[in-house]
Every structure is written in C-alpha cells, then in structure tokens.
C-alpha cells in the first residue's frame, strides 16, 4: 500500500499490493466489535429523536404525554429501544474502559493507575444515574 513516493528501481521490479477488503471488519471478532462500537452512534441519534418527541409531547399537555407513553409501548418501538439500549450500554462500557488510555492523571506527583481512572468513571456513572432517577421520580 505505501505511497508512490517510494521510487521504482530495477531491484524492485514489482510489488504486490493487496487491497483491503471492504468487509475487513467481518474477519476478526475484535474488528467487528470495533464497528459495532462505532455503530452505537446511530442509536444514540435515535435516542435523541425519541427523547425530543417526549419533550414535545410534554409541552402539548397530559393527553399527548399519555399518547407518547402508549406509542413507546408499541412492539416496534420497544424492540428498537431494546436494540438501542444494548448499543448504548456497549458504548458506555467501552468508553469507560478506554478512558484510562487517553487520560493520565497525576496526584501528589504520582501517576494514578488506569483501573482507578476507569473506576472513577463507573462511579460517576452510578452517581449520574442515581441523580436522574431522583429528579425524574421524585
């Protein structure tokens, strides 16, 4: 693959340049996991659309809110939200697990171990979840 900058010389008569398959990510489990992780983006966008419909319904009154809940309980939407939930969880877990590779935190002149940084992320997740639960269902 390399670039054309590499000059032709008589001792390098012919390179063979294999082309990367479009479906390279189906060949290994870890590549497929990567593509699935990236595809979580579609489902996050869907959630925002779903959430804005809720906000819209809330703004139009109690009846519209009930209608929204009934729509959200219809089989198609429940299935779609089920898939979305799986992808969103996959996004969250991979995101928190990879955080220590991007973040290096020093405390008192010492570098904190990666497990602690990931742990702090998970702790924040628990707090955020509890906070939302408390506000919404109070």
């Amino acid at each position: 693959m390399s670039t054309e900058r590499n000059r032709y010389t008589e001792f390098r008569p012919r390179w063979y340049r294999p082309k990367m398959s479009t479906w390279w990510w189906l060949k290994r489990w870890s590549s497929l996991a990567f593509i699935l992780r990236e595809l979580s983006s579609i489902f996050i966008a869907w959630f925002i659309y779903f959430f804005l419909r809720l906000v819209h319904a809330l703004g139009r009154g109690d009846a519209a809110y009930r209608e929204f809940l009934a729509w959200a309980a219809s089989p198609g939407i429940v299935v779609l939200n089920g898939i979305t939930f799986a992808f969103v969880l996959f996004h969250a877990v991979t995101w928190f697990n990879l955080a220590p590779q991007a973040m290096v935190v020093h405390l008192g002149g010492k570098r904190l171990p990666g497990a602690l940084i990931a742990g702090a992320n998970y702790a924040a997740w628990v707090v955020a979840t509890a906070l939302v639960l408390w506000i919404v269902s109070r």
Partner: peptide
Amino acid sequence: PIIRDVIVDIDD
C-alpha cells in the same frame, strides 16, 4: 507492499 515471499517494503 510485498517485495518477495514474506518480505514487505518498509520505506514508508
């Protein structure tokens, strides 16, 4: 790019 057998070009 493959030069020969299992030898690749590493200039890049």
